[in-house]
Every structure is written in structure tokens, then in C-alpha cells.
Amino acid sequence: GKTEVAMRAAFMAVQSGKQVAVLVPTTLLAQQHYQNFADRFAEWPVKVDVLSRFKSAKETQLALDRMLEGKTDIVVGTHKLLQKDVKFDHLGLLIIDEEHRFGVQQKERIKSLRAEVDILTLTATPIPRTLNMAMASIRDLSIIA
């Protein structure tokens, strides 16, 4: 359900000429999301890439270059996506899976992106603070049942 929503949002952003970053807390989840996105968009002119520790330094640099040149439409990665040296040509959407599993430093970087890009946060189990923010209308909340 939530991955389907993320893929549809990513597709709409790419069709609007924007790049999409999918931020996940673990390398294994990055690989799973990468495979799902790559499979889904295999028949479309959408370039999907992944940044994780499973990639060599050379592969990582090539992926970063493609992102900066606008040749990558969707990139899936761990906290590496939030580092200062990671640059996009035209980032329009940040999808965060399991935001509560990121630390303070990563959340501060995410907060700095909020003014520039749309952010979609996915979670299977909303933590009380997030739920409270939604109930107080500070944050939007959609439920897939």
C-alpha cells in the first residue's frame, strides 16, 4: 500500500520534470525499494538508481554524477542521500520511509530541504508525536486501510 502510493507520487513528480529521492533507514530496504521502483518503471523512460554501501566508490561516484546531470530520475538510498556532497539537478520530491528511524542530524538536514521540495513520509506505525501533530493539523495524515 504505502510503497504503491510512493511509486505513484514519484511517477507524477518525474512526469513534471523533477527528480525524486527515496530515503530509507537500511541498506537492505534501499535494495528492496530500488528493485521495486526499477521493476515498476522498466517500461517507462524513467532512470532509477541506488546509493548504498553495496556499491563501490566508483559506482557511487557515477550515480552522483548522473544525479547532478539530471540523468537519474529516481534515486533510492540510505542516509548517504542527506550528505552535503550529494547534489541533484532538480530535486522535487523526497520520500522518507520510516522517518522515526533517522537521527537528529538527519532530521535537521530533512528540515532544511522542506522549503525547496515536497516531502512524503511513509510509516507503517505512526509514532505518538507524529500522530499528535496530525491530530493538531500541524502535519497532514493519510491512512491506507
Rank of each mutant, 00 (worst) to 15 (best):
Val46Asp: 08
Ala6Thr: 09
Asp97Leu: 03
Gly1Gln: 11
Ile119Trp: 03
Lys55Ala: 10
Gly77Phe: 02
Ser112His: 15
Gly70Lys: 03
Asn36Phe: 00
Val86Arg: 09
His33Cys: 06
Glu98Met: 02
Pro128Ala: 09
Thr26Leu: 10
Pro128Cys: 10
Phe102Asn: 00
Thr60Leu: 13
Gly92Glu: 02
Ile119Val: 13
Asp49Trp: 05
Ala42Gln: 14
Ser112Val: 12
Arg8Gly: 07
Ile110Val: 13
Phe102Tyr: 03
Thr26Phe: 07
Ala21His: 01
Glu108Thr: 05
Met12Ile: 14
Lys55Tyr: 09
Lys71Tyr: 12
Arg66Ile: 02
Leu120Val: 07
Lys55Leu: 14
Pro126Trp: 04
Asn132His: 12
Thr78Leu: 00
Ala21Val: 04
Leu120Tyr: 05
Ser142Leu: 08
Leu82Met: 08
Ala6Trp: 10
Lys18Met: 11
Lys80Phe: 10
Met133Ala: 12
Gln15His: 15
Phe37Ala: 01
Met133Val: 10
Phe88Ile: 02
Ala124Asn: 08
Leu94Met: 13
Leu141Thr: 06
Arg139Met: 15
Val76Trp: 02
Arg129Lys: 14
Thr78Ala: 01
His90Thr: 12
Ser112Leu: 15
Val75Met: 01
Glu4Ser: 08
Thr27Arg: 12
Leu68Thr: 13
Gln106Asp: 15
Leu131Lys: 06
Pro25Ser: 07
Leu29Asp: 06
Ile143Pro: 05
Ala115Thr: 12
Pro45Ile: 06
Lys2Phe: 04
Val5Leu: 09
Gln31Arg: 12
Asp39Trp: 07
Thr3Ile: 11
Thr60Trp: 09
Ser137Met: 15
Ala38Cys: 07
Met135Cys: 14
Asp49Thr: 11
Glu116Gln: 14
Asn36Lys: 11
Leu81Glu: 00
Glu98Ala: 04
Gln106Arg: 05
Ala57Pro: 00
His90Arg: 15
Leu91Asn: 04
Val22Trp: 07
Lys58Cys: 07
Ala10Ile: 06
Ala10Leu: 03
Leu141Val: 09
Ala63Gly: 03
Leu131Tyr: 12
Ser52Ile: 09
Ala134Ser: 14
Glu4Val: 10
Glu43Pro: 00
Ser56Met: 06
Ile144Cys: 01
His90Val: 10
Pro25Phe: 00
Asp97Arg: 02
Glu99Cys: 05
Leu113Glu: 07
Leu64Trp: 09
Val46Cys: 06
